[in-house]
Design a protein around this nucleic acid. Sequence first.
DNA 1: CAACAATGTCAAGCAAACTTTACATGAATA
DNA 2: TATTCATGTAAAGTTTGCTTGACATTGTTG
Lengths: 70, 70
Amino acid sequence: MPNRLREMRERTGLTQEELAARVGVSRQTIISLEKGKYNPSITLAYSLAKVFSMSIEDLFLLDERKVEDE
Amino acid sequence: MPNRLREMRERTGLTQEELAARVGVSRQTIISLEKGKYNPSITLAYSLAKVFSMSIEDLFLLDERKVEDE
DNA sequence: CAACAATGTCAAGCAAACTTTACATGAATA
DNA sequence: TATTCATGTAAAGTTTGCTTGACATTGTTG
């Protein structure tokens, strides 16, 4: 689950703790997500995407996966 | 978690079992999702959205929630 | 009627998301 | 140096997404 979470968080100048508070999860969860450790639920993904004013697909790079060949 | 899953599945003429097979989950999971019982992971949500050629946000009505007043 | 396909329900169990706590590290700064 | 802030790690525990299996219901069709 690679994603743009860390990039976007740093770009907006938020700490992990602040971001966690904004979307209502623990800081651990933010750390794990940034490290790509798992697959969030769509409600959490959506909350995060909204913080950065982007779509779930963009934040979590869903359209970029598995292009394999073209 | 209201969503357009059932509507889209019926519109495309798939059975619950066929849809489950396509996205790699059990039929029970499709039933529960159609009933709005839970909050799928983004990878499952994305697989489902792709079956119907739409975005996660549209399939799961994420932008429509909580408008409260306008 | 019998048989089958599609949907639904219930319940037990497993796996993964998410929490909580505690501690460690490096950078910045008084 | 000592303190504080942001990040990281590790482990144990809770919650919930998801599976499996068994059975019931309704509609259709031979």
